[in-house]
Write a protein that binds this DNA or RNA. Structure first.
Length: 208
DNA sequence: GGGCGGATTACCT
DNA sequence: GGTAATCCGCCCA
């Protein structure tokens, strides 16, 4: 008998058509990065689904296809990382089949291991709730930047996994997405998923 | 080649 | 509640 590290979530997890289901199921999963021998892990507590060409909030709305968004049109289970406001790295996960540009933004996570490394990366002095709350902070603490875009999450060093924890259904709530007012009516869609009462969820505390 | 603005954050009053 | 920070990406010319 031997013990093994938790395996990366398989391609079958990402290669599904319902981006909302995947965004919900990502809650409780663990992001693992092991860059330059520095292991950091964090449990996802907040996600947002971006539903491809029909979603006005998505970079791929209307079939928009550019050098930056090309990765979303590729294989599921790949990282889409872009720079926002010239400062913040946004870590997304590509889902669905090739040519269907669905993606899920990771907006909040609870730090598990490698907290000293996260503090070093973020320049913070103490590991309070701001360490991995908000998409820019999640990516920064985990060392994820735009150079990782296109990286397969089915491989070593940078992947998602499960330790068996699944949040109770009653602890999950869907809300409109943050910061997408430009999307008109689509800004109201309940495509954001959070674990209620979790301090690593961005914005105001959410209760039922 | 130029201009505009953003799937944010932190710090200000 | 207001806004500076900071840099491409993207669109238009």
């Amino acid at each position: 008998m031997h013990t093994t590290a938790n395996q990366p979530l398989s391609s079958g997890f990402y290669d599904r058509s319902d981006v909302l289901t995947i965004a919900r199921e990502l809650l409780g999963k663990i992001i693992v990065t092991n860059f330059n021998g520095e292991l950091t892990t964090a449990r996802i507590v907040e996600t947002e689904a971006y539903a491809g060409v029909t979603d006005k909030a998505s970079h791929a709305y209307g079939g928009r296809r550019t050098a930056r968004t090309e990765v979303m049109y590729g294989e599921a289970g790949v990282a889409y990382v872009y720079l926002c406001y010239g400062i913040h790295q946004m870590f997304n996960i590509v889902t669905n089949k090739v040519d269907i540009p669905h993606a899920i933004l990771i907006r909040g996570a609870e730090p598990l291991t490698g907290i000293p490394v996260m503090l070093q990366r973020t320049g913070k002095k103490t590991a309070d709730f701001t360490l991995t709350r908000g998409p820019g902070n999640v990516a920064k603490a985990l060392g994820i930047n735009t150079s990782r875009t296109g990286h397969s999450l089915l491989e070593d060093k940078f992947y998602l996994t499960s330790d068996g924890f699944v949040p109770p259904e009653e602890d999950i709530i869907a809300t409109p997405r943050i910061g997408v007012d430009y999307a008109g009516a689509d800004a109201l869609l309940p495509y954001r998923f959070v674990i209620i009462n979790n301090k690593y969820v961005s914005g105001k505390p959410i209760r039922k």
